Simulated assay, not measured.
Amino acid sequence: MYSDIAEFYHEIFPVNQEFLAFIRNYLGAPGGRLLDLGCGPGDYIHALSGEYDGIGMDANPEMIHLANSRNRGKFYTLSFSEINGLKGPFDCVWCIGNSLSYLPYGMEGSFFKILSDLLGTSGRFILQVVNWDRYLSTGEMDFPVKTLSDGRTFHRSYEPSKENTVIFKTSLQKNHEIMGQWTDTLYPKSMDHLHDLMTRSGMTVMGEYGNYDKAPFSPLSSPASILVAKKTTL
């Protein structure tokens, strides 16, 4: 899907100013090293590049092409299974936009262990996914329809599937005619499960929130699951 929507990605997923305000609490001193996992077109690394040394990675080559052609920073085509090729330490690492929901269950342990190793001694990791607790309890997930400047509309929905996975259905329409449609497999991860993964990989969870205003996480009402963690020190 992401290769097909790259040309108008910014219209569907504009830069989230609330996230930029939130992340500044955890960046560390200017000049530090930042890592955006699942960076898309690299907008957040670009926004912080005047003060920090930023790297972005994404599994989609078209997104990395956009990042390298439009934004400041260093961008690489890498999947979550290839982050062991990155060289730490990093002062702040983040993975937002529900990107981690694409990580298969069998790869979670190794991913978080490598991530913990990439963090500097005082480094921070910020993770944001949709509130899977609510979906797993109610089976409901509401997505607003996104209208593009040319009148096309972008639609999203979830459909439960086998082995605790979810099919992410997306389509591009105009005047109710489907111009393109795609499906992807997602791997829901509850807040407790994410907390446990971080703890077992050598990180300490510092906060669990339901939005970027740091509202307490509510399994049935929060729009998102956000965790902030640091490397555990003895």
Rank of each mutant, 00 (worst) to 15 (best):
residue 80 F to I: 03
residue 94 W to Q: 00
residue 61 P to Q: 03
residue 67 A to Q: 11
residue 59 A to M: 08
residue 71 N to Q: 13
residue 80 F to T: 02
residue 84 N to W: 13
residue 66 L to I: 03
residue 76 Y to C: 11
residue 94 W to P: 00
residue 68 N to K: 14
residue 64 I to Y: 02
residue 53 D to I: 14
residue 59 A to P: 03
residue 95 C to P: 07
residue 69 S to T: 15
residue 60 N to S: 07
residue 76 Y to E: 14
residue 63 M to T: 06
residue 79 S to W: 07
residue 59 A to I: 12
residue 80 F to M: 03
residue 88 G to T: 11
residue 74 K to T: 08
residue 64 I to T: 07
residue 52 Y to N: 00
residue 81 S to L: 00
residue 58 D to S: 09
residue 79 S to M: 05
residue 61 P to H: 04
residue 93 V to S: 06
residue 81 S to Y: 00
residue 91 D to E: 01
residue 95 C to R: 11
residue 78 L to Y: 04
residue 54 G to P: 08
residue 92 C to M: 04
residue 95 C to D: 01
residue 72 R to L: 12
residue 54 G to S: 11
residue 72 R to M: 08
residue 71 N to I: 00
residue 83 I to M: 14
residue 56 G to K: 04
residue 84 N to P: 05
residue 87 K to S: 15
residue 73 G to P: 01
residue 59 A to G: 12
residue 59 A to D: 02
residue 65 H to V: 06
residue 92 C to I: 03
residue 96 I to V: 05
residue 82 E to S: 15
residue 86 L to C: 12
residue 55 I to V: 15
residue 83 I to Y: 12
residue 90 F to V: 10
residue 54 G to Q: 06
residue 96 I to Q: 05
residue 88 G to D: 10
residue 87 K to V: 15
residue 54 G to I: 12
residue 90 F to A: 09
residue 84 N to A: 14
residue 84 N to H: 15
residue 95 C to V: 12
residue 69 S to M: 12
residue 88 G to Q: 13
residue 89 P to W: 07
residue 90 F to L: 10
residue 70 R to W: 04
residue 96 I to H: 04
residue 72 R to H: 09
residue 78 L to T: 11
residue 72 R to E: 11
residue 84 N to Q: 15
residue 86 L to N: 13
residue 64 I to H: 00
residue 57 M to N: 06
residue 89 P to F: 09
residue 85 G to E: 05
residue 52 Y to I: 01
residue 51 E to F: 07
residue 78 L to W: 07
residue 76 Y to H: 15
residue 56 G to M: 03
residue 75 F to L: 10
residue 51 E to N: 13
residue 70 R to M: 07
residue 65 H to I: 05
residue 52 Y to S: 00
residue 55 I to L: 15
residue 62 E to T: 09
residue 50 G to E: 04
residue 71 N to L: 01
residue 68 N to H: 11
residue 96 I to A: 00
residue 69 S to N: 14
residue 65 H to D: 10
